[in-house]
Amino acid sequence: MTNATTKLTPFAACDHVDHHLFAVQPDIPILDALEHASVYLSCAEALFHQATNAVRAEHSATIRWASKHMLDTARSLVQASIDGLHTAKAGGEA
């Protein structure tokens, strides 16, 4: 199970169609994916704290929007890692 890798995980669904704008790619080493998720979470947290101090309302909204997308990306990286670990534990392709 030391060679576990991510599974394809689409995210950022389009509102009007059944497609996603982005996807975590398959076969990325789990550690790499989780390290990236950690960075995205740290950035989202920092932005969240900045949003409360934004002088203009539109800046606060933009910062919150960016935080949401960073959280979506981090969540997808974690989910792709979990799915990859389950596949590796099961001993093959899912």
Rank of each mutant, 00 (worst) to 15 (best):
M1L: 10
T2M: 10
A4W: 05
A4D: 11
P10V: 12
P10M: 14
F11H: 15
A12W: 03
A12G: 12
A13P: 06
C14K: 11
C14M: 10
D15A: 12
D15I: 05
V17E: 07
D18T: 05
H19V: 11
H20C: 15
F22Y: 13
F22H: 06
F22I: 01
A23G: 03
A23H: 05
Q25G: 03
Q25M: 14
D27W: 02
D27G: 11
P29K: 08
D32L: 08
D32C: 06
A33F: 08
A33I: 07
L34V: 09
E35L: 15
E35N: 15
E35F: 06
E35W: 03
H36E: 12
H36W: 03
S38F: 10
V39P: 00
Y40N: 09
S42L: 08
S42K: 15
C43S: 05
A46F: 04
L47D: 05
L47Q: 07
L47A: 06
F48E: 07
H49I: 00
H49D: 14
Q50M: 14
N53H: 10
A54W: 00
R56Q: 09
R56T: 00
R56L: 11
H59S: 06
H59L: 03
H59E: 07
A61M: 12
A61Q: 15
T62V: 07
A66T: 15
K68I: 14
M70C: 05
M70S: 01
L71G: 10
D72Q: 11
D72T: 02
D72F: 03
T73I: 01
T73N: 05
T73V: 04
A74C: 07
R75C: 05
S76H: 09
L77H: 07
L77A: 04
S81L: 02
I82R: 10
G84P: 15
H86D: 10
T87I: 00
K89T: 02
K89E: 06
A90Y: 03
A90I: 01
G91R: 10
G91N: 07
G91Q: 09
E93V: 08
E93D: 14
A94I: 05
